[in-house]
Amino acid sequence: MGQATDTVERTEIGHDEFDPIGTLALIMVYFAILVALWLFMYFVEFLGNDPTVTGAVVPVVGLI
């Protein structure tokens, strides 16, 4: 029922005339956000949340 009440006039845009530049712009913004948030989460939130589990295999051997 979406368009039933729409009064916006439309122009037909075919396959070859359509370049989704707006989508590319939006999704690049998304990409940048993802990269920034990932780095923040891994290197600040995670690695900054010491102590962290490290090499469980090595120390057991190290009896004096």
Binding site: D50, P51, P59
Partner: peptide
């Protein structure tokens, strides 16, 4: 508030090593 986190499952033993400075 740390990254020390494991499931404890009957029959299994979880091992984790961490340093406390």
């Amino acid at each position: 508030g740390t990254n020390i986190n494991t499931m404890a499952i009957p029959g299994e033993i979880a091992t984790m090593t961490a340093e406390f400075d």
